[in-house]
Design a binder for these strands. Structure first.
Length: 425
RNA sequence: GCGGGUGUAGCUCAGUUGGUUAGAGCGACUGGUUGUGGUCCAGUAGGCCGUGGGUUCAAGCCCCAUCACUCGCCCCA
């Protein structure tokens, strides 16, 4: 064998058939739930202006500062491989005047995200997300509906024991006051802060809240909490969200340290966690971003959305021992022996496919035994065997693979007979 | 970006204090059976032992570097 020269780029992976179908299962489940709830699918380009993400996600966030794939095109334009799903959807909303559609606009998407991070299990440089956005509705019921959409998807995927954590981080009115109080508090305790958190304090103080440093966490226990600083509007909104969730019996956990890593969020933020310990526990999350549309040049428009990692959902499925339905295999294998039979088999396969019977077969030189062995490995319920004798008599042999029983049928009747047996009308 | 672990056949893994032709199971292929699969039997292919350098009479094994994977941290999904 030739020396292997190329391999997948670091942090990226080949999705082989034996695993690809699981992704399809998750994606189909999500798509159905989203469509049922009135969401329409959108797809935006992989490449966007660098400025789009810098302005929306924000400087001082890890995603922008150290994880973006930035490249220059031949015209010298700086482009970015999509690192997250919301900014581009909002760009599209504005660019195509979706503000003049009946509001709110509900969109869902599947997209590959690129982040230049150190890979490990459940974390790749190219990973797949499914997400949804509701644009043009600021009512708390929308937040609750969106959260329940994601929860419904997890539930349909048979994922038990996911925990939902939720918080409100306020808006332009109240967040500055909170930020000020937090900074004052942290500065008063700066000696006990971990080194890295002192840097965060200077750059992006809210990020100190989800610090994992033990020394910082001690300090955080008594830190000011966002919920105590919410303005009246934000308070009412958050109370509304929780009431709707309570009404539907959704259990959640208030987490006053949850702030999420992207700057555009305001008010509601939430995240679903799996049972895994450690860093890759986050399965999906999102929040409200009422300022983003305006920030990107559109009319002031409230919006809320989430993104969920498909690889992580699948890890969680494996963990929970959930096995998705196997992809459909062919139902019929057509085996042939001898030159004239091969042509008859070739024709029969096409006739079966035209008749909506999934079929495959050998149009090669193998003996009948080898062909049946292949049929067996494919797990087809029936094989059709055509040899010299059958061609001469215009018949075929229909073999039940489970019992080994065989019967002779007229070649003109085999398609109809198989359709009947499979209940295809 | 930081710290630990691991790289031997397509897959899962053995491989003794460094010793001469590197093994098993599964899988693939061929034959036993030129018109009949699963079981069984026999056989074949598939390895520069991740890559490069070093130490040694001798390296899969020791040393260095590098790449990849993996675990933890940071951060996220």
């Amino acid at each position: 064998m030739a020396k292997q020269q190329f391999q997948t780029v670091r942090g990226m992976y080949d999705l082989l058939p034996e695993r690809r179908y699981i992704f399809n299962y998750v994606m189909d489940t999500f798509a159905r739930a989203a469509q049922d709830a009135g969401y329409q699918q959108i797809e935006t380009p992989l490449l966007e202006d660098e400025g789009l993400y810098v302005r929306s996600v924000g400087q001082g966030t890890d995603v922008v500062d150290k994880e973006m794939y930035v490249l220059e095109d031949r015209g010298g334009k700086r482009l970015v491989l999509r690192p997250e799903g919301t900014a581009n959807v909002i760009r599209s909303y504005i660019e195509h005047g979706m503000g003049s559609l009946p509001q709110p606009v509900r969109l869902y998407y599947f997209a590959d995200m690129f982040r230049y991070d150190r890979p490990q299990e459940g974390r790749y440089r190219q990973h797949k997300q499914m997400g949804a956005e509701v644009i043009g509705d600021g009512n708390p019921s929308t937040d609750a509906q969106l959260i329940m959409l994601l929860q419904r998807v997890y539930k349909r995927l048979c994922l038990p024991n996911l925990s939902l954590q939720i918080n409100s981080i306020g808006d332009v009115n109240c967040r500055p006051k909170y930020k000020k109080a937090l900074v004052e508090y942290l500065e008063a305790n700066v000696k006990q802060l971990a080194e890295i958190d002192r840097e965060r304090l200077a750059k992006n103080p809210l990020r100190v809240l989800d610090s994992k440093e033990p020394s910082t966490q001690i300090i955080l226990a008594d830190a000011p909490q966002t919920l105590n600083y919410l303005c009246e509007e934000c308070q009412t909104h958050f109370a509304g969200v929780l009431e709707y969730l309570d009404d539907m019996g959704v259990s959640y956990e208030l987490n006053h340290l949850l702030v999420r890593g992207l700057d555009y969020y305001s008010r509601t933020v939430f995240e679903f966690y799996g049972e895994r310990e450690g860093a890759q526990a986050s399965l999906g999350g999102g929040g409200r971003y009422d300022l983003l549309v305006e920030q990107l040049g559109g009319q002031p428009t409230p919006a809320v959305g989430f993104g969920a990692g498909i690889e992580r959902v699948i890890l969680e499925l494996e963990r929970a021992g959930v096995t998705p339905p196997e992809p459909r295999i062919s139902r019929v294998y057509v085996a042939s022996l001898g030159e004239p039979a091969r042509l008859a088999a070739f024709r029969l396969i096409e006739q079966l496919l035209d008749g909506n019977v999934s079929a495959t077969g050998a149009v090669d030189r193998d003996g009948i035994g080898a062909q049946l062995a292949r049929a067996d490995k494919l797990g087809v319920p029936y094989a059709v065997i055509i040899g010299q004798k059958e061609v001469k008599e215009n018949t075929v042999l229909l073999r039940d693979m489970a019992t080994g029983a065989q019967e002779t049928l007229k070649d003109s009747e085999i398609v109809a007979e198989l359709r009947r047996r499979f209940g295809i009308t």
